[in-house]
Nucleic acid binder design. Structure first.
Length: 194
DNA sequence: CCCTGATTCGC
DNA sequence: GCGAATCAGG
């Protein structure tokens, strides 16, 4: 899988939000955390001087890894697309606009009750543009969200035209019937088995 | 042992 | 440019 503009963009976003490389890799799908880290470096993104970071120079290696056998060919379901574009052409890809970072954090904070890591920051949608067409978006504001309303974000949270679906949500799900399917579509394997 | 990011280097 | 292997640390 290659690094498309969208994937790189998402990588930047998630990375800047402080998500771990493995988390990012999981959400992007199809890549390992090493790939993510490697890409981060190549993009010259600011690394994490925080915990886990180690800038210790290591050199006593080189010949250690010459002929290595593949270990864990990390596989993951691939997906493309973003929820924002599902119903309308509201935003497309507006992440870069407004220098203020943490675009999604707004929604994340408000929706803290929803499974962040599970649903992923931006659930995938992909195909079925004509088949499933659904959503009767009520276009409600952040403050109008209740436990009864679908909390599916639409558009760029930093923009004025950002809104939530607002349809009737199921008891179990923070989303309406339609968006719940989209949200939980990428059923990647999560976590290790213990 | 789990995890984190950092680095190297064959591809 | 990409990322597995590996390292170094919490």
């Amino acid at each position: 899988m290659s690094w498309t503009e969208e994937r790189v963009e998402k990588l930047k976003q998630l990375w800047s939000e402080g998500l771990s490389a493995s988390q990012i890799a999981t959400q992007l799908g199809g890549v390992s955390r090493n790939a993510v880290i490697g890409k981060v470096h190549r993009l010259s993104l600011p690394g994490r001087t925080k915990s886990g970071g180690s800038a210790a120079p290591q050199q006593t290696r080189a010949t250690s890894r010459n002929t290595a056998a593949p270990r864990a060919p990390n596989f993951a379901s691939k997906a493309a697309g973003r929820p924002a574009g599902s119903g309308s052409s509201v935003n497309a890809k507006a992440t870069a606009s407004t220098t203020s970072s943490a675009p999604r954090s707004v929604g994340a904070t408000a929706l803290k009750q929803e499974p962040e890591a599970e649903v992923a920051t931006q659930p995938e949608v992909a195909r079925n543009t004509d088949n499933n067409v659904v959503p009767i978006m009520r276009k409600i504001a952040l403050t109008e969200l209740t436990e009864m309303t679908c909390k599916w974000p639409v558009g760029d949270p930093t923009q004025e035209d950002f809104y939530f679906c607002g349809c009737d949500a199921s008891e179990n799900s923070p989303y309406c019937k339609y968006h719940a399917k989209l949200a939980y579509q990428p059923v990647n394997e999560r976590r290790r088995a213990s």
